[in-house]
Nucleic acid binder design. Structure first.
Length: 415
RNA sequence: GUGGCUGUAGCUCAGUUGGUUAGAGCGCUGGUUUGUGGUACCGGAGGCCGGGGGUUCAAAUCCCCUCAGCCACCCCA
């Protein structure tokens, strides 16, 4: 047989997985709505420059991972590689910058042309939220509280470690980068080959290198905290102090950096401690200045996003099983009555009904069994004469006749 | 982009130093007297051995190329 694959790095989501996806999204949305965040759904297609302007040309996403194309009208479009820049674009586009409530949440597919592996797909799915306003550490703390709630509700918080760092403002960061580069050049021979290449182009990225040689240098590496101006430092101290007083467990990781250019000040990640690859499950940070850089007001912003597939990798197996009830009649002459009965059933969210047809009695029973039915409603000639229907419980094997007009009541009693 | 591992039935996998019509378990399907599923027993269908090329009298098996999947690096959620 010829293989017919989905596009590399994309997956059909069905069966149990789609229920798990829905569960994660539902959990996320409930928490967001409870906190008066507003849902927004932006197009998967965006103008290419939205991301080029914001993510930074040196980032891998822009330089080699973006699905971009020129459409029939000559527009340069992309499949969005991430959510934040698109939300900012929508904020400006739809004149929401003056709105009193500028808290948004979203979920949907993102696209990056990477080589697929565990926890990494070309089409993956994120849930995320953004807060726009002033630079107020309450917002930083607030969205971390939401993340804590979200992850706890999914029962995975205890498997994750929260790491926090500050990237400072751009001036502080520039001062730091100069010192960092100086240090790295002095230790050039001790660096991995990959890291050597990054000294000029993207020195911050060396900080999250997994290479042992690189890591050996880390203890003597200059740290950004020592290069912050007083505003940036106070902001970070107040944020972490507040988290501590809220009993939120976190570690300060002075080498935590963000892959995208627009981040500054607070950066954080929830890391799956048992894995060293693709271990960032939820990550976010502050991006003051991003709105302005896309032509909007000088609004500050902060947000996070979580990868649904990565959440599912560490989530415990969940039981989504629903009680299925099979329905069939013993003979074709009763089909009208069967369908009428079927049509009159009251919607019950705990039950799904499955009409069964084809073959003799035995065959229908067998089908019901293969469908994993909890039980069967069977319309039989003899019983129909008494306005009754057979209920057969597959768990116990027992059966009884119940009046047609009390099926709904009867089924309610089962649960 | 670089590297490692793996491709045999719907699924999980056997297949010897190259040697008959390529096997098993599970699943699917038919039956074991016509209004009773599961268990048991008996039968059946289903394979371009990922694809292409080569070596050989002979290739699932050896060689080359290619594609796909998984995993790691890189990067990131």
């Amino acid at each position: 047989m010829q293989k017919l694959n989905s596009v590399k790095g994309t997956k059909d989501i069905f069966g149990k997985t789609v229920l798990e996806h829905d569960h994660v999204v539902k959990t996320f949305e409930d928490i967001c709505v409870f906190n008066n965040f507003k849902k927004i759904s932006t197009p998967i297609l965006e103008h290419e420059n939205i991301f080029i302007k914001t993510l930074g040309v040196s980032s891998d996403i822009i330089s080699k991972e973006m699905y971009n194309f020129k459409d029939q009208g000559g527009d340069y479009l992309v499949l969005r590689p991430e959510g934040t820049a698109a939300i900012v674009r929508a904020l400006i586009t739809n004149s929401m910058q003056e709105d009193i409530n500028k808290n948004f949440f979203y979920h949907g597919p993102m696209f990056r042309r990477e080589k697929p592996q565990s926890g990494r797909l070309r089409q993956f799915h994120q849930v995320g939220l953004e807060v726009f306003g002033d630079r107020n550490f309450l917002d930083d703390v607030r969205i971390i509280i939401l993340a804590e709630n979200f992850l706890s509700t999914l029962n995975i918080r205890n498997k994750l470690k929260l790491q926090i760092n500050t990237l400072g403002d751009s001036k502080s960061r520039k001062r730091y980068i100069i010192e960092l580069q100086k240090f790295l050049k002095n230790n050039y021979s001790k660096l991995s080959i990959d890291s050597r290449k990054k000294i000029e182009t993207n020195p911050l990225r060396i900080l999250d290198s997994k290479d042992e040689n690189d890591r050996n240098l880390f203890s003597s590496l200059p740290q950004i905290i020592d290069f912050l101006d007083s505003n940036s430092r106070d902001f970070f101290l107040e944020t972490t102090k507040m988290l501590t007083s809220l009993d939120i467990k976190f570690d300060i990781n002075p080498f935590l950096v963000r892959g995208l250019d627009y981040y500054n000040h607070t950066a954080f990640e929830y890391i799956f401690s048992e894995s060293k690859s693709q271990n960032a499950v939820l990550a976010g940070g502050r991006y003051d200045g991003l709105v302005k850089s896309l032509g909007g007001k000088d609004l500050c912003g902060i947000g996070w996003a979580a990868g649904i597939e990565r959440i599912l990798m560490i989530m415990d197996n969940m039981d989504f099983s629903q009680k299925i009830i099979g329905m069939f009649s013993t003979s074709d002459s009763l089909k009208t009555q069967l369908l009428k009965t079927y049509n009159s059933l009251k919607l019950n969210e705990n039950i799904s009904f499955n009409l069964i047809d084809g073959g003799n009695f035995k065959k229908k029973m067998s089908k019901a069994n293969k469908l994993n039915c909890y039980g069967c409603l069977i319309l039989g000639e003899d019983e129909w004469k008494e306005k009754k229907i057979i209920w057969k419980n597959f768990q116990t094997g027992n059966q009884e006749n119940i009046p047609i007009n009390s099926i709904d009541k009867f089924l309610e009693k089962i649960y």
